Amino acid sequence: MKLLILIFIGIVLFLIAKSYKTEKFANIKLDIKEKFEGDLMQHEAGLLVALMAKVAKADGQVCELEAQLLKHTLDDISRHFENQDEIREKLKKIYDDEKKSFDNTIQICKNLYTLTRHNYQKRVKIMEYLLNLAFIDKEFSNTELMITEDIANTLEIKRADFERLINAFEMFYKQQKENAALSLEKAYEILEASKDDDVNILKKKYRNLVKKHHPDIIAGQGASQNIIDEATAKLQEINEAYELIKKHKGI
């Protein structure tokens, strides 16, 4: 099964101030595409998608990033089959069906273990992929922990490797949260404002700073080009800070 080996090599971090995502595999050139017409629940691709459904079901809701991850996964997997449109539809049906119940989770894991029993690193990558999905909404619930623990145990993932992966995701999102907090604090500082200021005060401070630093006004005062360039950069900084604060406050 070369397909999943390629797919799991592609798990990468992507910070678009969103989180992880799968890499697109358009750059991977396969000499031969697989022609598969059997039961995808007996294929690594189908079993992966089925486990994705179980993890997605754990928190009871599908956020935008989960939906994006699913879309990329279905696209990436199906692209490596000759009958890719048919495969994608079947994988989507597997996802929809398997999301209805946890009852057969262990059996799915056992089937996947049978196909990957001689490739421990592949199973670790599968686990990383599923934890990626669990963490993608920046929360890791007790239910998600329990379902991923069950999967890890059945796939015979070493506890140390399972905990290492969880710690890596937790550190990633903790750092992301801290960076966002620091950015917001800096935005208020640039706007010479306080987080307790109401909307009208924020708008007033923003407008005053724009008038003070607008390059056209500075140019009209006979300033040198260096001063005008500094004012242009400052105005951009003010605009970016104001937009961040507006987004944070839902203005």
Score class of each variant (00 low, 15 high):
residue 149 E to H: 08
residue 133 L to N: 05
residue 243 E to Y: 05
residue 148 T to D: 08
residue 244 L to A: 13
residue 180 A to V: 04
residue 198 D to M: 05
residue 23 E to Y: 15
residue 144 E to K: 01
residue 195 K to R: 03
residue 230 E to A: 13
residue 236 Q to P: 00
residue 205 K to Q: 13
residue 180 A to I: 04
residue 138 K to R: 07
residue 28 I to C: 11
residue 71 K to C: 06
residue 62 V to E: 11
residue 72 H to N: 11
residue 152 A to N: 02
residue 108 I to F: 10
residue 216 D to P: 01
residue 166 I to T: 09
residue 130 L to R: 01
residue 65 L to I: 08
residue 166 I to N: 13
residue 62 V to H: 10
residue 41 M to A: 00
residue 219 A to I: 05
residue 50 A to P: 01
residue 18 K to P: 01
residue 99 K to I: 00
residue 238 I to M: 14
residue 54 K to C: 02
residue 169 F to M: 04
residue 110 K to M: 11
residue 168 A to H: 06
residue 215 P to L: 14
residue 34 E to I: 01
residue 113 Y to N: 11
residue 199 V to R: 03
residue 81 F to K: 00
residue 52 M to W: 08
residue 199 V to L: 08
residue 52 M to G: 09
residue 95 Y to A: 03
residue 12 V to S: 13
residue 65 L to D: 13
residue 118 H to W: 04
residue 78 S to V: 01
residue 148 T to L: 08
residue 113 Y to V: 11
residue 114 T to L: 13
residue 152 A to C: 01
residue 95 Y to E: 09
residue 225 Q to F: 14
residue 174 K to E: 15
residue 57 K to Y: 11
residue 95 Y to D: 09
residue 82 E to Q: 09
residue 125 K to E: 12
residue 232 T to E: 12
residue 88 R to A: 14
residue 189 E to I: 02
residue 98 E to S: 09
residue 50 A to N: 00
residue 217 I to D: 04
residue 221 Q to V: 03
residue 75 D to Y: 10
residue 96 D to M: 04
residue 102 F to N: 03
residue 61 Q to L: 12
residue 140 F to S: 03
residue 151 I to H: 11
residue 71 K to E: 15
residue 213 H to A: 04
residue 211 K to T: 04
residue 137 D to N: 07
residue 209 L to G: 13
